[in-house]
Design a protein around this nucleic acid. Sequence first.
DNA 1: CGTTTAACTGAACGCTCGTTCAGATGCAAA
DNA 2: TTTGCATCTGAACGAGCGTTCAGTTAAACG
Lengths: 195, 195
Amino acid sequence: MARKQGSHSDITGPRVRDAALRLIAQHGYAAVSMRQIAGEVGMQAGALYNYTPDKQTLLFDLMKDHMVALLAALKDLPSRTEALARLEDFTRFHIRFHVPRPDQVFVSYMELRNLSPENFAMIEAMRRRYEDALEDILRAGEAEGAFDMKDTRVTAMALIAMLTGISNWYRADGRLETETIETIYWDLVRKAVTT
Amino acid sequence: MARKQGSHSDITGPRVRDAALRLIAQHGYAAVSMRQIAGEVGMQAGALYNYTPDKQTLLFDLMKDHMVALLAALKDLPSRTEALARLEDFTRFHIRFHVPRPDQVFVSYMELRNLSPENFAMIEAMRRRYEDALEDILRAGEAEGAFDMKDTRVTAMALIAMLTGISNWYRADGRLETETIETIYWDLVRKAVTT
DNA sequence: CGTTTAACTGAACGCTCGTTCAGATGCAAA
DNA sequence: TTTGCATCTGAACGAGCGTTCAGTTAAACG
């Protein structure tokens, strides 16, 4: 029964990754079996190995793609000059990027433990670059005299944790629009760091 | 070889829970086997069932005890009258309680998915009580005219996420003392919500 | 000192796991 | 129409899983 109509590698590959992402976000990497993922796509477990060398690499690729997309999108942000404007851009960008991707956020922040040491190091390095981008803005604001905080590094971590925490309570059918959430959080961020 | 010297239920019970907590925090609930936990304590897997009816209950008890201890400690906070003072007490309390318990924080925030529906509901209800305590303070501050924010519920969630995020980067042998961390975060919290 | 019993061992239960692979299948090229 | 090959099936591999339980051990009790 192999090679049904319209069942090609170009289509099955993404379907495998989508199913893996959703299942891992829901139940966790260790709790999801290759058979479950295959079943979600409508195939046998063995066929998954046409699309990934092993389960670990499947997880790593999901997390890597998320981080690559995040850093690429960040790079495309129009870089304004004033630190306050840059911070607002960063804040709104973070929310706009993460809110529509709850599964990626879940996996990227909860499955770090299940990465092999080498894979963990690569993901961690990308996360670090993202954190550094925020810290740069905070330092620039301090130099301008527009911002004032006790510790730029810790403040960067604090702000990212606050923003990413949205995924803990946000529901697409909830009472708040993304735009409203941006306004609420930008208000908090701005007040927290400005002089 | 059963019943070695000094090996009684009063001692083994806590050792089982300590081992389970550390291992689950490190590798995740689904990735840790009963045999691993038993091995850490120096016994066979079957003997664990003298101390827990099953693996799920072991996880639930770890999370329940953490939340019970958190809510009990919160209750013992001397309740001052001014909202600003209450918010400072809450902020410093949260940090002081969570920083020395990184494993409990990890487990309580990452293993919610692995709780049975009934157990999840119980933990979630306790978390809700904690969040409500903070929201009460924010509302009181608004009524006083001392605080100003767009949405008290969302702000409460944002602040808790920010504070709990400390566990993502804090290391006991790092450059910062708990007292210093309290100062940094209280500065952020206060500025974010005051008028 | 003999008996009881809490605490534990070690083996077993049925099941699921990640992964491999020979063989089946059907589209595309020749 | 025949051939080649990408794709998938279905079975199998050894290993480990949570849990149960009859039997062993040694501390505590009468």
